[in-house]
Design a protein around this nucleic acid. Structure first.
Length: 883
RNA sequence: GGGAGUUUAGCUCAGUUGGUUUAGAGCAUCUGCCUUACAAGCAGAGGGUCACAGGUUCGACUCCUGUAACUCCCA
């Protein structure tokens, strides 16, 4: 069989993914094995996978594939959420292009368009997950607007309402004037900006010539002013008790009130109170029974109540009002002012504080068990406790959750109102009627006529109000409580997600899990960092620094993308994404491919040759590598349970590239066109298979392909189970290290003396432990291109002298030697060793050290001292024979 | 303003209860090699007063205090 020069990912990725699917390796049914359950953090249907998702999905796939190969029944549930605000905006935009106004449609008609849109674009994400090689159970794909899921959300709403944990009320909420909906506190992002502080003159009615100056950032809201407030301890305003002032431009007469909430030192010390447009003013208003004048419409334009500039956008109105205030002498001064403004996470517009009647979830009660689960350690957060404090803080200071959204795309709130505003909450309209009848007695009468209808709340629920049920409802735990699947798969094993949604999603899932399953939803939470570009900037559409996933896969291959993103992703830290690391992944693919090519060259030459297998160097190489393999297997096992996935990958990478390719294969490599012993060949195949298996969770495609090219296989690597790790022989590992060190030292000596790789040498070893070299001397000769090796008991003149540990090596060659460099190197080493010895001796001559240090530490120091002295002696002897 | 975290080689990071050869890896750099698996490669090398200043200790990258810079969260 002819193998291509380089590995070509394109040729095999699709083939293997289809093969795995056809074997149904990714589909899971409850059985006698322990479950390993992961639910995908549902990306929203409007999007494409960005690099953050790529990191996230890769981490999950590594964990899931590893579990599947380690005796677990691995179940990874894919899906997406409906993203009410974002999707509705896209659908409205799509309709607009078709010349259709949303308001001209009925709710049902609109939803039909929305579902069509979802069918068309919602699959993009799934295709990307597939291309990345993710081993998700596609039969379990769940969408938060599926029928059963919709029912679950409604059921939970009703249940919490009946428990008194959901209420409806008028509150100051965050209003998104572009999406025309309320937002939860978590959906507001604050940014520092430089604004302006306007000092305005309000005429007092005590004296026609007297004014009071107030400072405001929002002059367009003065028409909503219903008071001016000053601090009762502020002497400047003490005389104004009981006084009134007039709002500029509209001349409303408003009282001057006193409250120590006011900061005397801020602005002018006098605050205009606009209860409809500021949360603090709202509270002041409640306290002082002030009127609420709402001057801004839901689309952000000035309302009729504003009296002037009606219909103008709030920011346009601001400019015009400032101009008019200035012209009419009400503007005392303007100053620069740095402040923070809230922006909508979804639409980016400035959030408008607005009084509005909305639905809320009481969070205090739900938060308690969720806090306890993490504090008690039932749920472990990784890495370390980096995010524990954030989680705790939020739950300890949690505020009620505004869950109603003024949209159509989502679960419609199951509340019905009569014309007097009385509420019943029920699953269906019919049930609502019955409930209403039961609750309020006879059918209500309006204007003496029999009343004929209840109206359902037009709003839908926050998308997170459906996502928080994800770990249970993907197994229908809400709609069919205690069913076999939820009993088997819940709680999940690990949740992998970004630290940015710790409140939105993670904390709330724990709440829902504790409330409805009475159990935590997952045992471990692994937070990935944010993906940045190589300059450390956030990836964003506007910067254009976010690469296209499919293009990257086309260019480097899925395995290389997975490698690149995992290798540069230490747990929890931000990841500086750099295409260099993908290149490294591609090179790694190629390295493994070439190891395959080398071994395949031997296939036809593998013969049972008497005596050859049992040569000492073959046996040494085989034993050494076997132990290296076990050592790394054990290390990787530990690293992975600690979620140190990046380190585990680096460890495997180095085992394959350095230990296997650079050392082991060179050691067992037969001479040019020479036969190889069949036993050595077969063991090498087995080692290679183990390496591929170890790497498979990270790079599934290339490993599966090579696994099958190595030899005829009865199974697939994808589901090949790991064998238990055998005990490790530390002695042979140490011997291997010594051998590598000797080889490297001699090669360095060759290099420094400009010996060409092809020039052979004669090597002499002066050592007390000759027997150590018996099993490795043939490897040594091969690796340093020595045609002759012998032992000596004395220093040899006119040779290159090198020292490793207590042993000395003499290289004899025809070439003229660079004794100056040689001497310099030895002197440098001598100096280093002497410095080291001094530091050890200093320790050992300290009485308090002798008294306090543990015996094994003491013994170690004494050994260090003896070793250092021996090395110094070796080096000095070597120096003495260099002319 | 409050809280959390980070600071180790040019870059990205390890360094597990303070002692393990006077700090490790990958990438990048430099030198030499087209050696019959691989130039997307091979062989070798150089590079760090562990942010700064104190303190605890026989001993500090590791523990404590302070300072500085950066990042994130909250108001």
């Amino acid at each position: 069989m002819e193998l291509t020069k380089n590995f070509d990912p394109k040729a095999i990725e699709d083939k293997w993914y289809k093969h795995w699917l056809s074997k149904r390796y990714f589909s899971s049914k409850p059985d006698s094995r322990p479950a390993f359950t992961v639910v995908i953090p549902p990306p929203n249907v409007t999007g494409v996978l960005h690099m953050g998702h790529t990191l996230n999905e890769t981490v999950q796939d590594v964990l899931v594939r590893k579990a599947r190969m380690s005796g677990f029944n691995a179940c990874w549930v894919p899906g997406s959420d409906h993203a009410s605000i974002a999707t509705e905006a896209k659908v409205v935009g799509m309709l607009k292009e078709k010349g259709i106004d949303k308001n001209s449609l009925t709710r049902t008609e609109f939803l039909k368009y929305a579902f069509e849109w979802k069918e068309k674009y919602g699959g993009i994400i799934y295709n990307q997950i597939e291309r990345l090689g993710c081993s998700v159970d596609w039969d379990r794909t769940t969408f938060t607007m599926d029928d059963h899921y919709y029912k679950a959300v409604i059921k939970v709403f009703i249940d919490l309402y009946n428990k008194g944990l959901i209420y409806r009320g008028a509150r100051m909420i965050n209003w998104d004037s572009a999406a025309k909906t309320a937002l939860s506190d978590e959906e507001v992002e604050y940014k520092d900006i430089t604004g302006k502080l306007y000092h305005l003159r309000y005429k007092l009615d005590t004296n026609k010539e007297a004014y009071i100056n107030i400072a405001t950032q929002r002059p367009e809201t003065i028409m909503g002013d219903t008071a001016i407030c000053v601090n009762p301890n502020d002497e400047r305003y003490a005389h104004l008790k009981g006084a009134y002032a007039f709002v500029p431009l509209i001349n409303r007469r408003i009282p001057i009130i006193f409250d120590d909430y006011i900061d005397i030192n801020f602005g002018t010390g006098a605050l205009k109170v606009t209860p409809a447009h500021d949360i603090n003013d709202y509270n002041l208003g409640l306290k002082n029974n002030l009127e609420i004048v709402d001057t801004i419409n839901e689309d952000g334009t000035m309302s009729a109540a504003a009296q002037i500039y009606v219909g103008e956008d709030r920011f346009v109105a601001r400019k015009k009002i400032v101009k008019e205030l200035e012209e009419r002498g009400f503007l005392a001064k303007e100053e620069e002012y740095s402040t923070r403004l809230g922006y909508s996470q979804r639409t980016g517009v400035v959030v408008e504080p607005r009084i509005s009647t909305q639905w809320f979830v009481k969070m205090k009660e739900l938060a308690q068990p969720a806090l306890k689960a993490v504090v008690d350690g039932d749920i472990k957060i990784h890495p370390g406790d980096k995010f524990l404090a954030t989680y705790k803080y939020w739950l300890e200071n949690v505020k009620d959750w505004c869950i109603s959204r003024q949209l159509w795309w989502g679960q419609q709130i199951p509340a019905w109102y009569d014309p007097e505003g009385r509420i019943v909450v029920a699953e269906t309209e019919e049930e609502a009627y019955n409930k209403y009848y039961n609750e309020f007695g006879d059918k209500p009468q309006i204007n003496g006529e029999i009343w004929s209808g209840l109206t359902q709340d037009a709003d839908v629920l926050d998308t997170w109000f459906s996502s928080w049920l994800w770990p249970t409802q993907v197994f229908k735990g809400i709609t069919e409580p205690d069913n076999e699947e939820v009993k088997y798969y819940y709680p999940g094993s690990v949740l992998v997600t970004g630290q940015d949604i710790i409140f939105f999603w993670v904390a709330r899932m724990v709440m829902a899990g504790m409330e409805y399953e009475k159990k935590i939803p997952f045992k471990d939470v692994y937070f990935t960092g944010m993906v940045r570009d190589k300059h450390g900037r956030k990836m964003s559409k506007s910067l254009g620094n976010s690469p296209d996933l499919l293009e990257l896969i086309d260019k480097y291959g899925a395995d290389a993308v997975r490698f690149g993103i995992m290798v540069s992703s230490p747990a929890g830290n931000d990841l500086m994404f750099d295409e260099n690391s993908l290149e490294q992944g591609r090179n790694f693919n190629n390295k493994i491919w070439n190891a395959l090519k080398l071994i395949k060259m031997w296939e036809g030459r593998a013969r049972q040759l008497t005596g050859i297998y049992e040569t000492a160097e073959n046996k040494f190489a085989l034993d050494w590598f076997e132990n290296r393999l076990y050592k790394v297997r054990a290390d990787v096992e530990i690293l992975m349970t600690q979620f140190r996935l990046s380190e585990a990958l680096k460890t495997i990478y180095s085992l394959i590239w350095v230990d296997f390719c650079s050392w082991y294969l060179e050691w067992i490599k037969p001479g040019f066109e020479q036969p190889i012993n069949a036993a050595v060949y077969n063991k090498t195949i087995n080692y290679f298979e183990s390496l591929l298996q170890l790497l498979h969770p990270y790079m599934p495609f290339v490993t599966e392909e090579i696994y099958h090219l190595l030899q005829e296989q009865q199974n697939d690597l994808c589901v090949k189970q790991f064998e238990t790790v055998k005990p490790i022989d530390a002695t042979i590992l140490a011997q291997g290290e010594l051998l590598k060190q000797v080889i490297t030292t001699i090669r360095d000596g060759r290099n420094k003396n400009q010996l060409k790789p092809k020039e052979t040498i004669t090597l002499f070893i002066e050592t007390d432990i000759k027997e150590t070299y018996y099993s490795i001397k043939d490897i040594l000769c091969k690796q340093v291109n020595a045609d002759e090796l012998s032992f000596t008991n004395e220093a040899l003149a006119n040779t290159i002298v090198l020292a490793v540990e207590k042993d000395k090596f003499y290289i004899k060659t025809d070439k003229e030697l660079d004794s100056v460099t040689l001497k310099e190197d030895l002197l440098k080493d001598l100096e280093h060793q002497k410095g080291f010895l001094a530091s050890v001796e200093k320790k050992l001559s300290n009485e308090r050290f002798i008294q306090n240090a543990k015996t094994d530490v003491l013994a170690m120091e004494q050994k260090k001292k003896a070793d250092a002295e021996a090395r110094i002696k070796t080096i000095e002897e070597s120096l003495s024979i260099i002319s």
